[in-house]
Design a binder for these strands. Sequence first.
RNA 1: GGUUCCGUAGCUCAGCUGGAUAGAGCAACAGCCUUCUAAGCUGUAGGUCCCGCGUUCGAAUCGCGGCGGAAUCACCA
Length: 591
Amino acid sequence: MQRIADIITKEIKAAGNKLWEVEIDNKQIQIQKTRKEFSGDLTIVVFPLVRYAKSSPEDTASALGNFIKEHCVEIHDYNVIKGFLNLEISKEYWLDFLSGLNDIADYGVTRGNGPLDMVEYSSPNTNKPLHLGHIRNNLLGFSISQILEAAGKTVKKVNLVNDRGIHICKSMIAWQKFGNNETPESTGIKGDHLVGKYYVKFDQEYKKEIAALQEKGEEKKLAENNASLMIEAREMLRKWEAGDKEVRSLWKTMNSWVYTGFDETYEQMGVSFDKIYYESETYKLGKEIVLKGVDDGILIKEDDGSIWADLTQNKLDKKLLLRSDGTSVYMTQDVGTAHQRFAESGFDKLIYVVGNEQNYHFQVLKIVLKNLGFNWSDKLHHLSYGMVELPEGKMKSREGTVVDADDLMDEMIETAKSMSDELGKLGNYSEEEKNNIYRQVGLGALKYFILKVDPKKNMMFDPKESIDFNGNTGPFIQYTYARIQSVLTKAGDVSSIVPEIEMNEKEVELAKLVYEFPDIVSDAAESYNPAIIANYLYELTKEFNQFYHDFSILNAETETSKLFRIQLAGNVGKIIFKGMSLLGIEVPERM
RNA sequence: GGUUCCGUAGCUCAGCUGGAUAGAGCAACAGCCUUCUAAGCUGUAGGUCCCGCGUUCGAAUCGCGGCGGAAUCACCA
């Protein structure tokens, strides 16, 4: 079935030829949804066409309207208000469309093995549990992967775990000194939380030590450097690099605790990966590329042996790529991993889901790769998202002012439970079924809350006010889905042939929204923005609830109307299901 | 100071590839359950779209300049 906007575009061009003997440029053709307060479905903005017609906007609109109405069966009528030509699409077109829907298995989804999009997200440090900021990252990364796949891409989700470095040594030192051989088993504490506890412990003890040194008259900078804990942590990192057996063994043990904990968190969050990279295995990558860059005269070697990229041509600073002792930095490694990934997979896009604090890093990364002669650097895309802010300000892991991911998810589920119990609609369900619904609703609320916001914007999270379950929320959409399922169950099996009926206004509105879904999916994919899906689903759901309130489905005036409404409700339900799954949100059959 | 992003109702957010009288939700107030799930629906109230200039038939949307906020500019990752 041809999309209506394409049909109209063609008609406008034809009208240009016939009426005014001109070729109308596609850029001058503006078709948009008619605003609610006017009658019509689609609106052509005629101002840009006035110069072709050489008459007033009103006359141009009328002439065009007449032409289209005559030549185009899909357009039933039109009206002109100022320079706006409002077109009324025939009910037959919508009925046709809805009939065709039954033959489409996965409406809104483009199938096929499209080009490979690699999405890197999550990328946690292994010294502390995940917090609210990670939640935004994980939800975005997972959701955008789902969306890209629905837009026909082949998607590979990857996670680059930062499992080495001074921060992990800090946890290790603190555990050695103060841990009394605690393990997740001996304490019952989740592994990532246990390790995180010692990361915080390190910082506390470290601060005490600095204060003590300052007390003795040492300067702050010196005190920070000379504190024995820090010296020990640095020594441990050195030993780690040298492959010291004991250090490596402790490192492995504590990391394995963390991974077990992360796996639980990921599972609860509903996210997954196709491949996990470990920085301990990749951190040496990139060095050769950098050295070759020096040979090729692209990079600069300073007298002390350090290697730099001069980006002053690009209005940026110089950037270090190898330390004077020959070791890699973050950038070196990213150059290496990107190169390796391209060599392995020849990705069409490599999407990094990373916070906007790294904007500069990725800007530099692209330029450095480009300068080194890798033309595929254009294929890198930094999906930069804003910080999650708390009312008191920024979250700081070390100071314990974080909203822990596990705690937050548990609280959400608990809230969903008490809310649901109060409403008491799940009477005859088993405990297991109930718990599953609490989980779906609680996490649905959290996920939707985060994903409905434009990724690039900073967002505010107030733990005290927590997250709503009413209004523009996940549970609102889930609730609508559950209502639809309830109706469908009661309706039983019905014919899939769409009856010829005279649709009412609400039914047309819903048909129009259903019609939009595929465009919404491709929009979201192109702009890497799950919020587009979320906001669309809200609009669709709101419209459905109004319809549901105003008209009875099962007690419709006529049998054909009943059949039509059941089918329409079914289609809305399918879109909610699919759309929510693109957000990584489950929908319950009842709630 | 340089760079990037953000600034829309009391609060949280849509709308931004220029288009008609700027929209939701929350909070407040007033209604709607004997009828398909009231986690719903309806209504009232709430605006200098940060400010200024410019481009345009037309600017919340584009450009420039301010103001305010965030991030970043390490031989950390």
